[in-house]
Design a protein around this nucleic acid. Structure first.
Lengths: 127, 127
DNA sequence: GGTATCAATTGCGCTTCCGAAACAATTGTC
DNA sequence: GACAATTGTTTCGGAAGCGCAATTGATACC
């Protein structure tokens, strides 16, 4: 049962991330987010948000659904939720008015940046 | 808006995790989990599970609620859900029968270990 | 022994998410 | 211009989570 728990500890440098440290990092970040009530987003929503802010634009509902392998309503609803939070915004494509272009916002960038800092901070603790 | 996106790139070794790589890692792990439909767990539930498997036992409902700063019903219901998935099990404390001891399971250990491998694998991709 | 305290659970109303299908708006095709 | 195809949204029924308050069972106190 505790097979993974007794796996070897890797040195601090040169061997990437050991399983134990990976789990500790995940735990610490989740703890910070849950304690701060920042965990409003589903894992899917978080994935959508990160995709929007990491991958090169433009982003459409259909494109995101295909890339993430989820249905389109999932994207639409996630955009509703995150849009009301100010994390993303939508805009009709002028060239093809069927498309909706998903745009980044200042608040969304700040949110993503805060997540990054949380991760980096805990990664430093673990190093 | 893109302040964080233009922040400096850190070298591959010696400077820990850059914000960009942290976000990329989070994104990649989330993508793997969402695509594989492994994301049945809330961020809170994941935190509870990781705490059970990372911190030293014994774990009680009250102890977890205090440590994670959530209410007790949150713990109870998360244990219901994860218990039905076979990820954890409960047992009355013989010494004080008010307490419930949360125990690890083989399936839970495998689940956590799989998460760890997912993280480690993507960390290697990014290194 | 009777009462207060404590641990965990459950009930209630509310909100949110999900999947599948139906829908409205726009574009391509002949 | 009529019709098919595409994009995004909405609707519907069902499931799950949340906070808060009440409840059950067990222990401590005097």
């Amino acid at each position: 049962m505790s097979g993974f728990a007794s796996a070897g500890f890797s040195p601090s440098r040169g061997a990437g991330l050991s399983p134990q440290k990976a789990l500790r990092l995940w735990h610490d970040v989740a703890l910070t987010r849950v304690r701060g009530n920042i965990g409003d987003l589903t894992e899917r929503q978080m994935l959508i948000l990160l995709t929007i802010y990491l991958e090169t634009p433009p982003h459409t509902v259909r494109g995101l659904a295909a890339k993430l392998e989820v249905t389109k309503p999932v994207i639409t609803r996630a955009l509703d939720t995150m849009g009301s939070m100010g994390l993303v915004s939508r805009k009709r494509d002028d060239a093809d008015k069927r498309n909706v272009i998903i745009q980044r916002t200042v608040d969304g960038a700040l949110y993503v940046e805060a997540l990054a800092e949380t991760i980096v901070g805990h990664a430093e603790d673990i190093r």
